[in-house]
Design a protein around this nucleic acid. Sequence first.
DNA 1: GCCGGTGATGTTATCGCTAACATAAGTACA
DNA 2: TGTACTTATGTTAGCGATAACATCACCGGC
Lengths: 336, 336
Amino acid sequence: MANEGKATIYDVAKLAGVSHQTVSRVMNDNGSIRPETRARVEAAAKELNYRPSMAARALVTNRNSILGFLVADSVLYGPAGMLNAMEKQARLANYYALTVAIDNDSPESWAEGIEHLRRIGIEGLVCIAIKKEALQLAAKSYFNIPIVAIDTEEVEGATTIGIDNHKGAVSATTHLIELGHKNILHISGPKDSIEAQARLQGYKETMAEHNLQPMVLQGDWSSATGFRLGVSLDLEKTKVTAIFSANDQMAMGLFKAMRLKGVSIPERLSVIGFDDVPEAPYFSPPITTMLQDFNRLGEAAMELLIFKLAGLKPSKYQALKPQLVLRESTAAPHNG
Amino acid sequence: MANEGKATIYDVAKLAGVSHQTVSRVMNDNGSIRPETRARVEAAAKELNYRPSMAARALVTNRNSILGFLVADSVLYGPAGMLNAMEKQARLANYYALTVAIDNDSPESWAEGIEHLRRIGIEGLVCIAIKKEALQLAAKSYFNIPIVAIDTEEVEGATTIGIDNHKGAVSATTHLIELGHKNILHISGPKDSIEAQARLQGYKETMAEHNLQPMVLQGDWSSATGFRLGVSLDLEKTKVTAIFSANDQMAMGLFKAMRLKGVSIPERLSVIGFDDVPEAPYFSPPITTMLQDFNRLGEAAMELLIFKLAGLKPSKYQALKPQLVLRESTAAPHNG
DNA sequence: GCCGGTGATGTTATCGCTAACATAAGTACA
DNA sequence: TGTACTTATGTTAGCGATAACATCACCGGC
């Protein structure tokens, strides 16, 4: 414990009575070593509390075992959950997770974050919830390392992975239609979000399939906007009886607006959300929503990246389908 | 753009017509350099798209500019927000944020996470929301680098920083008392959380000061437990008219239980939470709570760490006091 | 009994930097 | 006008690993 972290490969070699190269071979488990020698080296390493210098290793191998995580909105439930899952997964494969948080709305922030990662040099990159343009910039700067992007548009130089937002939106919309609703409004996510667009598309197609007229209000993921849209929405005039909100946050804002207007959910208005945030069961009423398994998604993304790092061609990725979670915010329309 | 990231200090030196050491001096801004020489070197570096090798630098300086973040529950709003703020702050000072997520309930997971950080070698460590025992283990393993811990018990070898949970609890309790409540219940956080204990203490002291009888139910931060406790609580028998919940999550569960029992908030029961999660304004009713500024806290913690890294004695840290956010879940008791 | 092959180990060079010392050209002062 | 500093730069050594090549037993087959 005394000379904490100071022993080098030479110290170990000396104590074990072998050459430093033999120690290196034992540590990296390559080349052939007599079992007895290996034992001696391992004992010496343990006694000296030896840990190889990552810096020295990185210098000579040109690989540092660090993966970069470029993330926007890391405070949100989804990205935070994925980061968590991915770090654990990366660690299992002996990789380090270096996170850089950027601001989706500031191109300057993209460049800064990417430059930061370039400086330290990373072996692979994961981009989470970042804008297409930011991803493109990253891909251009990093064209020689594997990149996995989660929930983004396809971009040259990066492999994209995500949940099947389209199918999720179809399920959500179908649920409302099957309950008997005809005037179904969609509150969408921001225009520059690929997930938002996929959900919008799924909604529109499902409506069209049932010969129903789509109605869309543009949102931005935030509860505040959900609230604002809810306040200004005229249910009488539009005859809306159900709303598909592109995420749970906006649905929360919507709920509040409806409470204020005295519109009861689900009797007068059905609402379905998307994500299944932890708070969802505790809304008033508990919200029916589409569950996304961020944990699995994070794990899948990391597996994919590690595959690519190993130089293997990953098998085609099977997009995860969100699951309908039935709670109490949807019901049949009040007057058929 | 072609030989991406491959230029070395020697290439730059050659192009600029100087020695590699001069390049080093320009890059590190030390020693004296003729302005004209500096300009030539900088131009050469730019032309070659030169970035110093962190590995080589780390090898020789024995410092790698990496800070470790040991975090539990990184998915929760608080820790996630702090991580975000701290990474940005660290980046400003040219440090890298390497995150390791551990499981507070598994000592094995602590050891694993800490060993991971030890392997890569870090310059400083931030511990967020981790258990006392885990922090002690970390402090023991890292006694030669600065450690800053957020929201933990004081531990030898680490500097602790946090918000003033005690004062926050006093404010929350006082708010209820000033409204006229006498039978005030506290739903606490887990026993092994220092924050929970400080809040509990603040509650008890305030009650005692006003000659009121404290009542405590043991919680664990989760909405599910808040719900369970709310269901089993007999308001008639206990005469409880107000509840101070140690966090907003549990309050959410409580709200749901009360809705089910037909107890209206705040008419029949006042509830105050703690944290001010983003969803708080959208609860039904919007919840009165104690705001914690996680952003500021994260920044303060990082400033502290950077101070210590520079070898300076940081000035005494001024704990941030949570702010009362008045919303609609508290009111005067129904019958005076 | 000589030869090529394999298994186990040692030796040397090298990765790209910074530290420490060396050098050369001014600059100030006696 | 030489000594003593400062300023600006160059030269050499070494950080702690891995890679590549060298060495030396020992083994089996002819």
